[in-house]
Design a protein around this nucleic acid. Sequence first.
RNA 1: GGAGAGGUGGCUGAGUGGCUUAAAGCGCUCCCCUGCUAAGGGAGUAUACCGUCAACACGGUAUCGAGGGUUCGAAUCCCUCCCUCUCCGCCA
Length: 422
Amino acid sequence: MLDINYIRDNKAKVEDAIRNKGEEDVSVVKNVLEVDESWREKVQLVDGMRNESNVKAKEIGKLMGQGKKEEAQAIIQETSALKEKVKEHEEALNKLKGERDDLLLKIPNVPHSSVPVGATEDDNEVFKNWGNINKDEWRKPHWDIVERHGWVDFERGVKVSGAGFPFYVGAVAQLQRALINYFINEAAQKGYTELQAPYLVNEDSARGTGQIPDKEDMMYVIPRDELFAIPTAEVPVTNFHRGEILAEADIPKKYVCYTPCWRREAGSYGKDVRGLNRLHQFDKVELVKMVKPEHSYEELENLRKHAEGLLEALELPYRTLLMCTGDMGFTQSKKYDLEVWSPGQQRWLEVSSCSNFESFQARRMQLRYRNEEKKTEIVHTLNGSGLALPRVVSAILEAYQEEDGKVRVPDVLKGFIGRDYL
RNA sequence: GGAGAGGUGGCUGAGUGGCUUAAAGCGCUCCCCUGCUAAGGGAGUAUACCGUCAACACGGUAUCGAGGGUUCGAAUCCCUCCCUCUCCGCCA
């Protein structure tokens, strides 16, 4: 959610942001300003009437205390009429407030000036390339490798839950657990606090990080208990401090959290969902930061470098994309995607997405800190995957496979797995 | 899930319809006093929104778990919900 005062002062900028993010109709900006204008007029009117009514109620109290009942009765008559009037205007006031807030929630975050303007993924900028991509023709895609060894059981996953809910068996289950531990350890070493978070969240939390109203369809819903299965640890972790005012000394807050993630992924098909490429349930280690506004872009670069460092340590070639305005999503102001090279499929797979939300999420959830002047200020929130598991597993299986079918264990994981081959 | 008791500023805690502008204490900030590991005095100390102002500030409104209701007036009375504690039940 943007600051209404910002929208008032930067109408054209906000309209451009909406267009650049791929929405043609920008009338929401004009609408919200008009509704806000009427709301503010109404607030003044109603506050004035409430003031009058409060003053009179106090007089009545005084007179009653002195036993002057008749004089009190006269004023009660006056205020009864006033009360009716206040009630009428209050209804209009609440309606305007609701309209204003609904409209505000429909306005996307404004992209940072360093973000390329573009419509589709073709307009994303390749920010960085690391490693030499492997084009060996004998390399098999990971679904062949896991089938040969019985490492992932898709069929039984379908039986038990449905498509997109595989079982990991034996060595790959172990590999995945090793990666989770490795990722968490790396973050903890860099000062992130490890968190274990709820996997089900309430509606306020889903709204706080912007899944509602924008991306409602991505989530699994448990209607009976009014809960949502988290699509990413971003949701519980960013909401951890919702509604709080943090002390200046307490920020930056840095959290690392492993969770499974559930996504409905409606409308996916074909090679995109083959094997482990896209699942309804997958594991992810997530990094979340809450920082002072003046540091958020510096912190975004640190976040990106941290995620890149994990792929480098695993010796997996990757590229980093700077997402263009049209491909970056509703809530972000700047976003990098990390894509690992999948040598068995000869394609890039997204394994991390590092974003700065500036104050967009924090304003919704009223997450603030007290600055040097003792004034409250909205913090900036960031998050990034570090990293998403199944695609890293795929890349490892494909990159570390040998011609005889064996798969080597990456050096940094040997301590967790205790042998040289899976 | 059942029964009972509760939810009040950063914390403790008083407050059964109007002299409450939420007492008092603790903590914190600033000032004053004080030649010695101490103590005393004074002032201040929530959040959001609206308005005035160049700014410092000032005025108004709302908020005593949340949302409704009764009333001229609600922390206080009524209804619904949420949460905490105690006991029982269930349970890894």
